[in-house]
Design a protein around this nucleic acid. Structure first.
Lengths: 341, 341
DNA sequence: TGAGAAAATGTACGCGTGTACATAAGAAAT
DNA sequence: ATTTCTTATGTACACGCGTACATTTTCTCA
């Protein structure tokens, strides 16, 4: 309430009997400084409880020191599972913290106009990381603008095939291929696929992996065995209804994420079909619930935390080292076998 | 890459043929302005693609426009469940967004010195919301400093009984009381309690609720039926081992969160004890998994999203309306009955 | 038509720091 | 002791905006 008004650089300078520039030098650790002088400044600063004003620093340097992390948001509808979301976010946070950058969390309502470039123009952020972007008209153009302007940005878990956008993704084609191949190796040949919306590149990656794995085994993929949910558990439940009538013809189901897999499992279970028994099931993401649910769900493990870290690292490299080369990295995934297969 | 250098206020002023102050007035919508002038400015701004510099604005106003949200962080160890975390965070984000405040996400390593006041001194934030704080010496003093200085802060899901700290909490005493009373109503009298660490006030709230509910039913609480985990699933699993030998004497278990409840359920299931059949079980938080797991877990629903919203609202009120009264709000919770009881 | 009030706009400065450049102090070489 | 270089410190200004205050323009009403 009371307390002395915030001390400024000039107060420290006066108390230490030096110039303001010297105080700045001590705090930024730049230029040659006599040890004795440094001590005087440090003591004066401590006595006055001086703390440099971060805003003024940002202003003087022309950099905010913030990395914006854009997260899609629909109130009460969780587009991204909390697992997915918090793993990536933690990875980003760790990396940024090491480099004294701040994490500005930006919720993006799907309907409102997204203007990523404006974030940079207004200097709110020095770089940005975009989660949950989709290959849809509005989105694509916005990212293209970022890219053309050479701004430090990075997409996570989304690759635009025909565009050179920076991204840190995972090997979803391979993950899908392996999962389906595992089904086949275990003798399952009639394999359905519960996919997510194709505007997410990982959905189409997985579709290709699914199809190619079947073809490699001499099986012709059937359109009617590919279903599209929206990555929610509810959509898995819904598809279970459709799937129920054809379960006599189906050996296995591969799902694009764990939440849909679980919805499916629950829906089919009500109709008397048990995963791991009446049909094999593999999910995707290897979230916590996979090993909690019964029967335990086989799943494809995705290094979300590491993807977040790497995305942050790439953005920081662009910022700190001026790296301008584009990149489209893909981290490896692997199948975790549990009871459902 | 190329592109014109960022336009500044003076550029807009020159193009529009007005003074810089007028440009400012148009953008901030202050003071009387002739409609014609306003149009000139707006057009000039559009022509130059002008965007006010957020840093300079912050600097001139002496406010960062940021609300810091402090989240405990241990790499690879999730102190807060992702559900808990992302619900509260979403609530905060929504509210802040409505008032043009930014959300600065700050990961707090438990070992490093926490100096919340410094966040304010350095002007990084105008207010802050603290998640997962605990009643331990270092922590308490830091919050006390915040409080004494009258800084706009708010704790979420933690109340310090003997301190007037601002907080948005839930009625954990009542929730616990109701859960245990429900057990009793259903005929269970020998009720164990799997609690979390007592440094979290919600743990001790629940302990009191547990004890009082028993006493009201004429049952004397037994110390040896109270176990302490750390809110992780693993700790639930571990306690299941201890509990196994005494299951013949126990009717029901109340757990401090769903993750421990699930660990317990799984651990006991391996020993042949089924929740909802061999014993009744109620968890806490009503996270997604509660209705995913089999048997479905009864749980106490906590309005985490709303708590986040309210915490943000309180901080914003202090900031925008200068409200200085302290507050310790508690939102209601309720038991959701499922198969495990 | 003029005076006074109200509305609109302009002028000027502060916000606290980083840093280029100028200057002073000290060390080393002559 | 003088010069020369190096090290240490000080001076001065820019960064882009909000806003108090001064000034000008427009409006109102006599």
């Amino acid at each position: 309430m009371e307390g002395s008004p915030l001390a400024k650089r000039i107060d420290v300078a006066k108390l230490a009997g030096v110039s303001e520039a010297t105080v700045s030098r001590v705090f930024n650790n730049v230029g040659p400084i006599r040890e004795e002088t440094k001590q005087k400044v440090v003591e004066a600063a401590k006595a006055l409880n001086y703390q440099p004003n971060a805003i003024a620093q940002s202003f003087a340097k022309g950099k905010s020191g913030n990395i914006g992390v854009i997260v899609p948001y629909l109130p009460k509808v969780h587009l991204l599972s909390t697992h997915y979301f918090s793993e990536i976010l933690s990875g980003i946070g760790v990396k940024l913290g090491l480099h004294q950058y701040n994490l500005l969390l930006l919720f993006q309502s799907p309907h409102e106009r997204k203007d990523y470039v404006q974030l940079f123009q207004s200097q709110k952020v020095d770089g940005c990381i975009i989660l949950g972007s989709r290959n849809v008209p509005g989105e694509k153009e916005e990212i293209a603008r970022l890219h053309e302007l050479g701004l430090p940005y990075c997409l996570v878990n989304q690759t635009f095939d025909d565009e050179p956008f920076n991204s840190i993704d995972a090997k979803h084609y391979e993950g899908s291929f392996e999962a389906v191949s595992l089904f086949i190796k275990k003798g399952h040949k009639r394999i359905a696929f519960l996919n997510g919306p194709l505007e997410y590149s990982n959905s189409s990656d997985r579709l290709k992996g699914y199809q190619d794995a079947l073809r490699q085994a001499g099986i012709t993929p059937k359109h009617e065995w590919v279903f599209e949910g929206n990555y929610s558990r509810t959509s898995g439940l819904k598809i279970a209804q459709e799937l129920g009538s054809m379960m006599s013809k189906i050996d296995a189901v591969f799902a694009g994420n764990d939440r849909m897999a679980i919805g499916l499992m629950q829906g089919l279970s009500k109709q008397g079909f048990l995963a791991g028994q009446d049909y094999a099931l593999i999910g995707y993401d290897d979230s916590d619930v996979a090993s909690i649910i019964h029967p335990q769900l086989s799943s494809v493990q995705v290094p979300l935390f590491e993807m977040g870290q790497m995305a942050a690292e790439k953005v920081l490299q662009a910022l700190l080292e001026g790296k301008t080369e584009g990149y489209q990295e893909r981290l490896p995934v692997y199948v975790v076998e549990r009871d459902s297969i």
